[in-house]
Design a protein around this nucleic acid. Structure first.
Length: 602
RNA sequence: UCCCCGAUAGCUCAAUCGGUAGAGCGAGCGGCUGUUAACCGCUAGGUUGUAGGUUCGAGUCCUACUCGGGGAGCCA
């Protein structure tokens, strides 16, 4: 049986008859016809097929290849430049040492295993190899660890496999754990046994830059990446703190329906669903329902996804997002504001306590988060209007214009210089890559800045011409929040721009007892809340004024007939809160599978 | 609903005035025993979003559409 190499020169490098070694056939889907395969790292073609044995081997190879059984373990021997190639059934092949000796360890716990043998189960995050040493960066869901496979007698069974593993291959490995400050996670494992649990080829998300469209089309894989992993860990903690805050403070969880018969506040932004021939709506809020429950349990909260059909394509919007809504009986506006303040403070403290490393990875300034202390700022709507009309708002925007324009010039200069440098002769490739990456970053920043600078005059106009009685717009909120170091409550908005259920102010009936909480640094509104109208007559008047059908709200107005009490609550947007705490530019990174206008895959 | 920007190799992007579509990464092959988005050499990879138009000639100009990004309004 005679096998010839694809390239004659390769033949000479093939092992001699004196020794034999194990090879793995890989990349088989590209070689689905008989007699062609990849042995070790070389292509081989049967030429010509001679003898029954060869035929049989070739057909076994073809069958294995076409049935996609990978990897096929095989042995090759050489004799006088003829290659005798034998397919060894997989169960008879020389297996690497079984991975079972070491103690199973999570990467985050490796500090407890220094000097001991451990077994890691995870996925290959990245690989670098030299001729006789391979570095496998392994990800196990708890952290990253570089594992070293050196070419040595004890690694002979899997060294070649190790240095060819595709990104995200599922692997189980055993080795000695060492402390190594230089490495990611502070540890390193010298591999003595390695097992491929699940193959991975052509993983789409490489360790190079990708566009957001591509990444979110691959969202199901995307959150294996470090940045997303860090963010979603913070999300899990934020959600845990939300639940435990209310649970430890005497609130009862009440789940509210997602199919709702009528609008909470207005029908224009709801998703309509065909419910056995009747139109129902995806819940925009659970508030009206938790109001009923707070009359039964005193302090309650609901927590779940909520849906808005707003046709907004901005970095602050999702069509499906999570909101927590506490509701408290025997509470006025001040009480509710105090709860919101304590609640947000406790979320921030918890994240700061448990996620320093995640926040540092995300580049979040910890001192900023440490400064989120009580009391938060409190202003009224009237004061907000004065701020918008005042010198401070104007100066803020003028300063923005100056500093941002300066930064744009700086970036343009840097881009020109770096482009020139990267195309100059004699520049090393890695240096070029670095420069090109920096230029791309500058361009992103530049595009953002140009958009912002373009909008500044418009925002100045909006602020200057802001009329009492309007709701605060996005840019107005940004101005107010940026003029405060801490989160800022804005209370007592004009009733006419707010929802029908908000409590009329006792001393000025143009106002209602409501509040928004604006996160600093321009992150905008993360909470909206209010004291609720508890007077039956007043509520009915509001329902009529908003041209709502009283029949739809009969169950809700009943509350004001049977033992009505002052009460109130608020809704906190989970994703906006996470974006703020993590310092993210876009809300879509804060949820595992974002739903946005025009995007619902995967 | 309105305004601005974009769509070129699997990915990120080039392509001068309208004149033969390129690079890096990824993939495949070879080399390299301490790499850190490793590196070095070679190979393959294209209906330039779709449809039409102008032109001797269109990635480039024009029209419409589709999809994506950002913003306004609206909102958490």
């Amino acid at each position: 049986m005679r096998w010839t190499g694809r390239n004659p020169s390769n033949q000479r490098r093939h092992p001699r008859a004196s020794g034999h070694r194990q090879y793995t056939i890989g990349r088989l889907r590209r070689y689905r016809h008989a007699g062609v395969g990849l042995v070790g790292s070389r292509h081989f073609r049967l030429s010509p097929p001679d003898g029954d044995l060869a035929q049989s081997h070739a057909s076994i190879a073809a069958e294995r290849i076409s049935s996609g059984v990978v990897p096929i373990r095989s042995r090759a021997f050489s004799a006088n430049c003829d290659y005798i190639f034998a397919i060894v059934p997989e169960h008879q092949s020389v297996e690497p040492r079984r991975v079972e000796a070491g103690m199973k360890a999570a990467i985050k716990d490796l500090s407890q295993h220094v000097g001991k043998e451990v077994t890691l189960e995870g996925w290959l995050y990245n690989r670098r190899d030299s001729g006789k040493i391979a570095f496998l960066v392994v990800r196990d869901g708890t952290g990253l660890c570089q594992c070293v496979v050196a070419k040595a007698p004890e690694t002979e069974g899997f060294f070649d496999t190790a240095r060819r593993l595709g990104q995200e291959t599922a692997i189980r490995l055993t080795g000695m754990c060492r402390a190594n400050e230089k490495q990611i996670g502070g540890h390193e494992v010298d591999v003595t046994a390695l097992e491929v649990v699940g193959e991975s080829q052509d993983y789409p998300i490489t360790p190079k830059p990708h566009g957001i469209d591509f990444l979110f089309k691959n969202r199901h894989l995307h959150f294996r990446s470090r940045r997303q992993w860090h963010i979603l860990r913070v999300r899990a903690t934020v959600i845990d703190e939300i639940r435990s805050y209310f649970n430890r403070n005497g609130y009862t969880l009440i789940d509210t329906p997602i199919f709702a018969p009528a609008a909470g506040e207005g029908a224009q932004t709801l998703f309509e669903v065909d419910y056995f021939g009747e139109p129902v709506y995806m819940a925009q809020t659970g508030q009206l329902y938790v109001e009923t429950a707070c009359m039964a349990f005193g302090k309650v909260y609901c927590f779940g996804p909520t849906f808005r059909a707003e046709k907004s394509k901005t970095r602050r919007h999702l069509t499906e997002f999570w909101m927590v809504e506490p509701e408290i009986a025997y509470a006025d506006l001040d009480t509710v504001v105090a709860v919101a303040e304590d609640f947000v403070h406790s979320i921030a403290q918890r994240v700061l306590r448990d996620h320093k490393e995640d926040l540092e990875f995300l580049g979040r300034d910890l001192s900023f988060l440490e400064s989120i202390q009580k009391p938060f700022a409190r202003i009224t709507y009237d004061e907000a209007v004065d701020i918008l009309h005042g010198d401070k708002a104007r100066e803020l925007l003028e300063n923005d214009l100056t500093t941002k324009t300066a930064r744009i010039e700086e970036l343009n200069k840097a881009i020109t210089e770096k482009e020139a440098e990267s195309t100059a002769q004699g520049v090393k490739q890695w240096k070029k890559d670095k420069l090109i990456a920096e230029v791309a970053e500058h361009r992103d920043e530049l595009a953002d800045l140009e958009e912002e600078v373009k909008n500044i005059p418009h925002h100045m106009e909006l602020a200057k011409n802001f009329k009492w009685g309007k709701d605060l717009g996005g840019s107005d909120e940004t101005i107010i929040s940026r003029l405060h170091e801490r989160p800022c409550f804005v209370t007592h908005y004009p009733r006419d721009v707010k929802a029908f259920y908000m409590k009329k102010n006792e001393t000025d009936d143009r106002l209602c007892n409501n509040f928004d909480l604006l996160a600093p640094q321009g992150y905008g509104e993360i909470i909206g809340g209010s004291q609720r109208e508890d007077s039956y007559d007043e509520l009915m008047a509001q329902i009529n004024r908003h041209e709502l059908d009283p029949a739809d709200y009969a169950w809700y107005t009943d509350l004001r007939k049977y033992g009505s009490v002052p009460h109130g609550g608020f809704g906190l947007g989970v994703e906006r809160t996470i974006a703020w705490l993590c310092g993210l530019k876009h809300i879509r990174e804060t949820i595992p599978f974002p739903r946005m206008m025009g995007r619902f895959y995967p």
